[in-house]
């Protein structure tokens, strides 16, 4: 399979994702410049990486969402393409309206940079098919505006449709206030689109793909995508 990694001015996790995909997963990847207006036909999954696109001026992701590539990302997503937004990428997806909600400054008003635990809520998604519901992953976070907010009616819809994929928890998988690094409503760390093909997450799976860097829990997200695409190819071959 092949990943397309979008590069905005100020992206700084683009190479981390590239490395995770190439060396960690053993798949192909190419960078997509923010001024591009289309997604190449051989791309299976578009990644919006972390960073500080356009300096995070005004609001995180507010300016990046109007970059030429974002129209193509929206079309790609509408056609069922896989889109993974990590950290700043998640913020951009929310600003673009591809995912619901928005981000506030961290509750404690400080940038948080450490490993956290997240609980996997579903396994029937392209991003978590190698994991069991309730599985706990240890992943790094690094953000100043990671306090996810959705108004109560939207939150109820997210819960009802099972769109919350990851929640901050303690090592035992309990959703505690202390385990929530930024004050996100309902301990939300990752949100799916209603169709399940777009995921935004604040933790960085690409920074947890080798033991040398402190863990490989993040690799399971990429391996799930790999499995999803392999099975899709197998299914279409049968049909």
């Amino acid at each position: 399979m092949k990943f397309g990694i979008v590069v905005f001015p100020g992206s700084n996790c683009d190479w981390d994702v590239y490395w995770a995909v190439r060396a960690g997963l053993g798949e192909e990847a190419e960078f997509l410049w923010h001024k591009e207006e289309s997604i190449p036909g051989d791309i299976d999954c578009v990644v919006l990486p972390g960073g500080f696109s356009y300096g995070d001026y005004l609001r995180s992701g507010a300016i990046a969402r109007f970059a030429p590539i974002m129209g193509a990302v929206a079309r790609f997503a509408r056609a069922g393409g896989l889109v993974l937004g990590i950290c700043n990428g998640f913020q951009i997806l929310c600003e673009a309206g591809l995912l619901p909600g928005a981000f506030l400054r961290n509750r404690q008003l400080r940038f948080v940079c450490r490993s956290v635990f997240v609980r996997v809520e579903r396994s029937d998604t392209p991003f978590t098919n190698l994991l069991q519901p309730g599985a706990v992953l240890r992943l790094p976070v690094a953000h100043g505006e990671g306090n996810y907010y959705a108004e109560p009616s939207v939150l109820r819809e997210l819960e009802r449709r099972g769109q919350i994929l990851f929640r901050y928890c303690d090592a035992a998988g309990q959703l505690t206030e202390d385990a929530n690094p930024n004050g996100s409503v309902a301990n939300i760390a990752g949100v799916l689109s209603p169709e399940g093909n777009v995921l935004g997450m604040m933790p960085h799976p690409e920074r947890a793909c080798e033991t040398l860097l402190g863990g490989t829990d993040g690799l399971t997200v990429f391996e799930s995508l790999q499995r999803h695409c392999t099975m899709a190819v197998a299914t279409s071959a049968v049909l």
Binding site: A62, F66, G101, Y149
Partner: peptide, 8 residues
Amino acid sequence: RLLANPVI
């Protein structure tokens, strides 16, 4: 369009 995010 840009300066404010109506969600928040």
